[in-house]
Write a protein that binds this DNA or RNA. Structure first.
Lengths: 193, 193
DNA sequence: CAATTTGTTCAATAATAAATGAACTTTTTG
DNA sequence: CAAAAAGTTCATTTATTATTGAACAAATTG
């Protein structure tokens, strides 16, 4: 009875199907739903793959959907394209683009004769993995370097048994931090920079 | 306007205070609340630290609370100890222990003359980081090695422009996988095994 | 410069995940 | 072996997080 402790194995549920059209201003062609079903099997698979991946990293599903769709699209996509294929709302799509832009995972491209923003996926792992490490991990480790130093000092005075134990634990935490800090350059190396 | 894209910076809110005693069978001593406030500042800091850390990894907060408390406790703690200090329910505490046991982050110790289970924190990063990589990351990468191989084959037939593009993207994904697989042994190395 | 198109923001709602606590099983004790 | 203690499970409740869509702002067009 091994309980998995990360949502890696979470199954991707199909979108809770809304009556199309009626609510949002979508033209319904016959009885055909123009939501997720209009995707090719490969598109679907990519979308599901990236949904899992980003959920593992704590992002909303929609962010994975959008990235997956762009990743497997040869031509750049605009907001309407994405909304239609993924059956997402305008607001959600806009926010998804924003997050992806901020983490450097997508890029706006100019399309002559169309004033809408068009997006393509950035495909260099280095680009956003590196950004993630630099912006999220490194500052956190730096903060704890300072903080643990302070705690360690505060402990040094007390000389009873518990103070000794506490000092030991804080050192341990500090050694974790060091190990992680040693790993990061290796990751950068493998990512090739 | 840099929107952070992982809950690293999420602030730890104080527990929504319940009227103590009245509901759960807790003896209220005077007006004193025996919840989170009974912790020392250091205990509190450790708990907060681990709450952040485990939330980053997608675990529930309570798991971080329990681990943090055990990490900074010299003597082993039983379920009641943890429930009292963290103001958690029996069920939640039990499930937290279970998850932590499953990932090898805590260990039961025998305390003579007490038939309750007592827990201590495992403090070797290698132990559970290694387990995490082995149980969560590696199988996922292995699965994708197979899956991408299949997709790549299926693509090779089609010879139009799009098939070429798709093949390229699947190769790219495969190269991501390879890069990650190259990183893992390095991590193991740094963790010392 | 009014009308239209494009994109963003945010309050409200829906979906999801975590915590509670009562009911239960198992183990121990007298 | 009945009663008590310890621990687990799981249906329900509560809290959290994501998504929607209406209102808005900005840019473009005729």
């Amino acid at each position: 009875m091994v309980t998995s402790h990360l949502n890696l194995s979470s199954d991707i549920k199909p979108k809770t199907e809304k009556q199309p059209g009626s609510k949002r201003g979508i033209k319904v062609r016959g009885t055909q739903n123009d939501g997720v079903l209009a995707m090719t099997p490969l598109e679907l698979e990519m979308v599901e793959f990236f949904v899992r991946a980003v959920q593992m990293l704590g992002f909303p599903k929609s962010v994975g959907e959008i990235y997956g769709l762009l990743f497997i699209s040869e031509r750049s996509l605009n907001m309407d394209d994405v909304m239609q294929k993924l059956n997402l709302s305008k607001g959600g799509t806009s926010q998804g683009f924003k997050q992806l832009r901020n983490m450097g995972a997508i890029r706006v491209v100019y399309v002559p004769g169309d004033r809408r923003d068009h997006y393509v996926a950035e495909t260099e792992l280095r680009q956003f993995a590196g950004g993630f490490i630099r912006e999220q991990i490194q500052p956190q480790l730096a903060f704890w370097e300072t903080r643990l130093g302070m705690l360690e000092n505060a402990m040094k005075n007390g000389s009873d048994g518990n103070a000794h134990f506490l000092h030991e634990r804080i050192s341990k935490l500090n050694s974790w931090r060091q190990q992680m800090q040693r790993i990061l350059p290796l990751i950068n190396m493998v990512l090739g920079k």
